[in-house]
Nucleic acid binder design. Structure first.
Length: 482
RNA sequence: GGCCCCAUCGUCUAGAGGCCUAGGACACGAGACUUUCAUUCUCGGAACCUGGAUUCGAAUUCCAGUGGGGUCACCA
């Protein structure tokens, strides 16, 4: 049996920040399927849209994939047996293919292809009349090829369109959906294959390259199902055999219930949106693995290599899943907790003010690992370590007594360390019959100005005796003046 | 609107005719532990879209309806 070869073929359009989670999922599954089966994973850049393709976005795609640990066997930056891997560098291949398709009667030249605005087309979907108009096959379809060839030779600008036979039935067996999918030629439009700028559209380029690069399994989102018959037509026109074609689900936006829109790519679905808040790539990846795929035993936690080993195409869902940030939070806290103190320190450092020294931060790390869902919370959470904040008094009617007694006890504590602080305060609580929770909450609110902080005795130790006493004294005097 | 895909707790899902009075995870609620908060642990509520058909027996097969999604560009 031939090698399994899959590909991830992104378009480097939009800004680098617009790279979204959909990219990662598509890459992840294609990568996993190839690796699971001992095959190759190819990265191909589909930069056929001259106006929108950007070099910086391409570079960012490489960077993002690698940050998730997804690496490729062949690609623009590392070459391979079927180079080049950038479509803009393969133009002659597509032009030859287009010519061949015309010769074989599978395509035709069109000199009058209209350039419609996207909005105009969208608007037409609401009107049956306009829709019908849009779907009329171009006149050029029935013109004599010889005459068209003559015009081409004369340098007239043209476009090449697929010539879809009206009475043809297109059919393929979807290896993910596990069913035959059928389309009637009558329903399939004569899509443009080669644009007037000499660049191919997706429909031509994807087929030509998948053939050239010996891709064995096409594994893409369901938004591509309806263009599959066009691809089938091109494969046939080129005299090539069709690879396995399969479609997986589309991620839905929880707010709209629809496929996320371009605007959301930089917001809810942007990779950068999450990484910049301190979500670990491994956690994001793990969440994504389970969005549209599940193992038989319902295992939840996977490293990338575990995922590759466990990956099974039968676990790929057909229905569209909805993105759920709360579950991503859970994965992130799981991964954050598993980090070693040193790794946590390195990841956390950029999110913590420089007013907290490396030395102090090292001490704080073990106190906060189980307390944050994302690293970006750390900034505010740890503010009290270098900044005196407004105390809060709203909890108990014993506030004054709690803080006064604590002050007395702590003043007497000469050897300032966790052990002495613990024992002093524990004794105090016992002697006065304080309620432990209330007592500590009052101290916490006085020292940190927050109800939710790392352990307070440990915090006192790190803050030092002077700062601790000052904060308690100040809080008490503010309380008295109220 | 045409065509195509899909349909189990709020969400992600297990379930390939009897193991299902439907299991797990997130979220939610209650409790335990705890030097607060958090972590952890225990418990709880919560779903097979509807209607037919096949079968001794259907979440699981078939058909229809309904619902949701995708697509219909010189974008991918």
């Amino acid at each position: 049996m031939a090698d399994v070869r899959t590909r991830f073929a992104p378009s480097p359009t939009g800004t680098p920040e617009s790279i979204h989670l959909g990219f990662v999922i598509r890459a992840l599954w294609n990568y996993a399927y190839a690796k699971k089966n001992g095959g190759q994973f190819v990265l191909r850049i589909e930069d056929t849209d001259q106006k929108r393709s950007r070099a910086d976005t391409e570079a960012e795609i490489f960077k993002v994939l690698r940050s998730f640990g997804i690496d490729w066997d062949e690609g623009p930056d590392k070459g391979g047996p079927y180079a080049p891997y950038r479509q803009s560098e393969r133009l002659t291949l597509y032009q030859e293919a287009a010519r061949k398709l015309v010769e074989n009667g599978y395509a035709y030249y069109d000199f009058e292809a209209p350039q419609r605005e996207k909005e105009e087309i969208k608007a037409a979907y609401d009107s049956d009349e306009k829709l019908k108009e849009l779907k009329i096959r171009p006149k050029a379809r029935d013109e004599r090829p010889e005459a068209a060839l003559e015009r081409v030779k004369n340098g007239e600008p043209y476009v090449v369109r697929a010539k879809i036979p009206e009475d043809r039935v297109f059919e393929y067996e979807d290896w993910i959906l596990k069913k035959k999918v059928k389309f009637f030629g009558k329903e399939v439009p004569d899509m443009i294959l080669l644009k007037s700028d000499g660049f191919p559209t997706y429909h031509l380029a994807v087929v030509v390259d998948d053939v050239a690069m010996k891709i064995s399994h096409v594994f893409r989102g369901q938004e591509w199902i309806s263009s599959t018959p066009i691809h089938l037509h091109v494969y046939e026109g080129l005299g090539e055999s069709v690879p396995n074609i399969g479609h997986f689900s589309v991620i839905l936006d929880p707010r709209t219930g629809k496929k996320f829109s371009k605007r959301d790519m930089t917001a809810l679905f942007g990779v950068n949106t999450w990484t910049s808040q301190g979500y670990l790539p491994a956690a994001i990846l793990n969440y994504l693995m389970l969005l549209g795929w599940a193992p038989k035993d319902n295992q939840e936690l996977f490293t990338l290599s575990e995922f590759v080993a466990a990956f099974d195409q039968n676990g790929v869902q057909k229905a569209n899943p909805t993105f759920n940030a709360a579950k991503l939070d859970w994965f992130n806290s799981q991964y954050l907790q598993k980090l070693s103190d040193e790794d946590f320190f390195v990841s956390a450092r950029p999110f913590v003010s420089k007013e907290i020294s490396d030395e102090i931060l090292h001490k704080i790390v073990p106190l906060v690992k189980t307390r944050v869902k994302k690293l970006s919370e750390l900034g505010e959470y740890l503010e009290y370590f270098y900044k005196q904040k407004e105390p809060i008094f709203d909890l108990t009617d014993k506030y004054k007594e709690h803080v006064t007694k604590a002050l007395e006890a702590l003043e007497k504590t000469n050897d300032w360390n966790l052990e002495t602080i613990n024992s002093q305060l524990t004794n105090l609580i016992g002697e006065n019959n304080f309620k432990t929770g209330d007592f500590y909450m009052d101290l916490r609110c006085s020292i940190a100005g927050s109800r939710s902080t790392p352990p307070i005795n440990e915090s006192m130790e790190i803050l030092g005796k002077d700062v601790t006493l000052t904060r308690l004294t100040d809080a008490l005097s503010v309380y008295n003046k109220r």
